[in-house]
Design a protein around this nucleic acid. Structure first.
Length: 902
DNA sequence: CTTGTCTGCCC
DNA sequence: ATTCTGC
DNA sequence: GCAGAATGGGCAGACAAG
């Protein structure tokens, strides 16, 4: 049985159904409606109703849990109550009824997947396969080598294989747990906290005893499903207890001090038994991770979030260390390291389709519910909770979920969307409790998991978990040691941003050896250093007073980290570590051509910019973005470019990241030569004189760049950090220096996540007195404080009209149809960086380019203009004027090569 | 075949 | 990209 | 100040729909 995970069943079913995948898929589609699930049995109704009642008040995450106004909460309740009326049915993919085997979480295919994520020749394979050496880890993992393995496997077959094929109502078991996971659970958590602020070391004894079905399986009956149901309650309570203990920690002003110390104390109370309620060594249940997510999502305290994750990871380390990579991947909300380029290919629209299909509701109904709930995750949980499945597949495991998602990502070709949708439905069908929600969120890569955890927090948790697991809580200054490990792990990840490599190294080797296995190397992109926005030259001088600094042009192109690997090959990586060699083969050639003779390996940081060599001028960003992403031959390349290099991170085996900028600049100049218009060093100047800097900034803007980057000469390169050692200075940050517009909000979209219940974005229009039209110029969604957003939402609600006025001009694409229309009343001042010819927006339509309007780049709200009427809004003519001014400025720019005057 | 929608990734 | 917010 | 989560325009590419 090579692949028996839930996801792989699809392909098996395909084979059964027909000779080819595509054909099978068609059949699946046409059959799916007839595979409708049994309507809920009437005897279940009551309990389900209760369940719903409770659940309505229990959104998945904190954003929804804590609406800022009572009104919003009311709306939410109302929405859910309405939804409750509807009949639901779940349409299962045809093959599911036979999907009753145990999942095999770490099978050979999975190991292959790991191996494919090789970095730098080091595959993950050996490590995945290798057994952890360290003490506690020994107890767990190997089904092959660990003595009690055989028993486990047998159990697993019995439980998963036989029992689950029988029809039974697992929801009955799961439902109360969901209730616990939601609002009631929260209240309970708070009570615990209040009554029992000091943790008792035994960890919620009563509940735990009841809920912990360890030891031999309790017969073939409830099997795995029940075990996991029980387990979820158990680790839920344990995790909550952890969280509430951690919440007692007070942060202190003196740095690492009190908070970290208190947290360190907490770690000593960690008890594996309170978490592990599934079979020792068995695959880590996905529900376990979701429960941790839930608790993490429900606190805003960073320390508390970390503690919960640390406990979860420690548990995995102690029971099934090979699951940690998958758990971390899911927590990081990535399918693979970014440079692997694996994409899910599912977004909001398609996921809503999945929910519509699964619930038997119309898309419109789902839309409406989504609008009220503001989160596809909670929506999925809700949908799943009142659907009864004929057959309940075995519980999901962490490894199986990740594997499924990766398989979804690999699906392509005609009908791919249907296949993807089916695969997701299958996961949803197999989900219990809040799992459906996190499956959904895992699919929303754009938005992330939204539990308040990103790389930085995650890395800390990984570091602490490994430290505690391997080295225990011993030592006098645990907090300091933990912090030390965290720093080492963060640094390792910065230089080698691949969780697979990181975790394997930590599993396989001593923590202290991490730098030997996880370090900067040509061929693996590192996270680029970022800059802080600043409001003006005086702020820059202020921040850098006393330090030497340099100013460089901030070119408006695409960030490119260019690697020369030892074998002479060249790679180009984007700001987000995507491999973009396909888009910039010419940049790679240019760099090759400019290498000095003794360059063996190199990593430079640069901006590639669209360029007109004949005119010797920089072209706008939009030109660059028109390039094909995958150039087949040199003739496909659209437009010339110039590489503006500004940093050097690695040179002939020397890791320069930790050296000061001054030194890195020298290295850069010794590694590369210059040719104007092909390969240049960023135009820079060293000065601390306000007037001189002002002049340089003006020059930069005149030369078609965005402004200046200001960098401390003695600073190291801080990967992925938006450091105050790099400041960016753009004209549009400075009040008065930016283009601003007085615009009229004529429509809006409902907000998601923490903006649930208010509008999330607005459609803005300028006024055209000639045509007497309001013409859209952009949407806007930033620049509001929460309070402003509430106020504006409330005010505009009064101006709501059923449809657009006939004097509104807006694009006819779906994305340009607001969910709500307004009378043209309010006037807002909006700031922007640039104007562009727009395929969507209608401002000054036809006045610059036939059939096209004008739009703005980086729009943000400045303030409301109470003093203006809508007819006083910026006019089409004024927009054209601004656009022309910008175009003329570009036309008059000096050739860039000529100002390289230093 | 063309056209429109969705997604991901640049900024 | 820009911006706001709780820690 | 950090870390996280809201949100923008616009492009290419992949599919779906017609």
């Amino acid at each position: 049985m090579k692949q028996s995970s839930i996801a792989s069943l699809w392909s098996k079913a395909s084979k059964r159904l027909g000779s080819g995948v595509a054909q099978a898929d068609e059949q699946t589609d046409s059959n799916s409606k007839s595979q409708t699930l049994k309507p809920e049995a009437s005897h279940c109704k009551e309990s389900r109703g209760e369940n719903l009642e409770a659940q309505n008040d229990i959104p998945l995450s904190k954003e929804v849990v804590q609406p800022r106004e009572a009104g919003r909460l009311k709306r939410l309740r109302k929405g859910c109550a309405a939804a409750k009326e509807s009949v639901t049915e779940l349409c299962l993919p045809k093959d599911l009824e036979e999907d009753n085997e145990a999942e095999v979480p770490v099978d050979s295919k999975y190991l292959e997947d790991c191996a494919n994520l090789s970095v730098n020749g080091n595959t993950t394979k050996d490590v995945c396969a290798a057994r952890p050496v360290s003490g506690a880890a020994k107890c767990a993992s190997d089904r092959e080598t660990i003595p009690n393995k055989k028993r486990h496997k047998t159990d697993s077959v019995e439980n998963d294989g036989v029992e689950l094929s029988a029809e039974f109502c697992s929801e009955g078991d799961i439902a109360p747990r969901e209730t616990g996971g939601g609002l009631k659970g929260q209240e309970r958590g708070r009570e615990d906290e209040a009554e029992d602020p000091l943790p008792d070391k035994e960890n919620t004894p009563g509940e735990e005893q009841v809920l912990k079905p360890r030891g031999p399986p309790s017969g073939r009956g409830s099997g795995m499903a029940e075990a996991v149901g029980g387990a979820m309650e158990a680790f839920e309570s344990a995790i909550r207890a952890t969280a509430s203990r951690a919440s007692g920690i007070k942060s202190s002003k003196d740095g690492v001090g009190a908070a970290a110390l208190a947290a360190a104390e907490q770690h000593k109370a960690f008890s594996l038994d309170s978490y592990v309620t599934w079979k020792a060594g068995a695959p880590t249940p996905f529900g376990f991770l979701c429960e941790a997510f839930e608790v993490v999502a429900n606190t805003t305290k960073r320390q508390e979030k970390a503690t919960v994750l640390i406990d979860a990871f420690r548990t995995i380390l102690a029971t099934r260390p090979e699951d940690l990579i998958a758990a971390v991947r899911l927590t990081a909300n990535e399918l693979s390291p970014p440079h692997e380029g694996l994409e899910l290919g599912l977004g909001e629209a398609t996921l809503k389709d999945v929910l519509a299909d699964a619930s038997g509701k119309t898309k419109a109904a789902i839309d409406k519910q989504y609008q009220e709930v503001g989160d596809l995750g909670s929506l999925a949980v809700e949908v799943r909770s009142r659907v009864r499945t004929l057959v309940t597949p075995p519980p999901l495991t962490v490894a199986a979920v990740l594997k499924s998602l990766r398989e979804v990502a690999r699906l392509e070709g005609s009908k791919a969307m249907n296949k993807k949708k089916n695969a997701i439905s299958k996961l949803l069908v197999a989900s219990r409790g809040n799992e459906a929600g996190y499956i959904m969120r895992a699919c929303e890569f754009k938005r992330g998991l939204r539990i308040g955890v990103n790389d930085s927090t995650l890395l800390t948790a990984i570091a602490h978990a490994f430290h505690l697991h391997k080295l225990g809580c011993e030592g006098r200054s645990l907090a300091d040691k933990l912090e030390e490990t965290a720093q080492a792990v963060r640094r390792a990840f910065c230089e080698c941003p691949c969780y697979e490599v990181l975790i394997e190294s930590l599993l396989k080797h001593e923590i202290s050896e991490l730098p030997n296995y996880c370090h900067l190397v040509a061929g693996v992109p590192i996270k680029p250093m970022l800059a802080k926005p600043t409001l003006g030259i005086s702020e820059v001088l202020d921040k850098f007073s006393g330090t030497e600094f340099t100013c460089e042009y901030k070119y408006d192109g695409e960030r490119a980290q260019i690697h020369i690997v030892d074998d002479g090959s060249v790679q180009v990586y984007s700001r987000n570590s995507e491999n973009s060699i396909g888009k910039y083969p010419d940049a790679a050639e240019i760099i090759k051509k400019h290498l000095q003779t003794d360059v063996k390996s190199l990593i430079i940081d640069a901006e590639v910019v669209a360029y007109d060599r004949k005119a010797g001028k920089i072209k706008p960003f939009q030109e660059l973005s028109r390039r094909a992403k995958k150039v087949v031959s040199a003739k496909d390349i659209k437009g010339e470019l110039c590489v503006f290099a500004f940093d050097c991170l690695y040179f002939n085996g020397d890791i320069l990241v930790r050296k000061p900028l001054s030194e890195r600049q020298k290295a850069l100049r010794s590694a590369l030569g210059e040719t104007p218009g092909e390969c240049q060093f960023a135009n820079g100047r060293v000065s601390s004189d306000l007037m001189e800097l002002q002049a340089f900034l003006d020059e930069a803007v005149n030369d078609c760049t965005e402004g200046l980057m200001v960098k401390a000469m003695d600073a190291t390169y801080e990967p992925s950090k938006r450091s105050t050692n790099w400041l960016k200075l753009k004209k549009d940050y400075m009040t008065g220096a930016a283009d601003s517009f007085d615009v009229v909000p004529i429509g809006a979209w409902f907000g998601k996540g923490k903006r649930t219940g208010v509008y999330g974005s607005f459609l803005l229009a300028i006024y055209n007195p000639q045509t007497e039209e309001y013409q859209t110029i952009s949407k806007i969604g930033t620049g509001f404080s929460e309070q402003q957003l509430e106020e504006h939402s409330a005010k505009l609600r009064e101006f709501e009209i059923p449809g657009p006025r006939n004097y509104y001009r807006y694009g006819d694409a779906a994305a340009m149809q607001p969910e709500v229309w307004f009378e043209a009343k309010a006037v807002w001042e909006v700031k922007a960086a640039d104007l562009s010819i727009s395929p969507m927006h209608q401002a000054a339509r036809g006045m610059v380019e036939p059939g096209k309007g004008i739009s703005i780049r980086f729009p943000r709200l400045v303030r409301e203009r109470d003093d203006k009427d809508p007819e006083d809004a910026t006019t089409a003519e004024q927009v054209v004027e601004m656009y022309q001014k910008q175009a003329v400025a570009r036309a008059h720019a000096k050739p860039a090569a000529e100002d390289d005057d230093y």
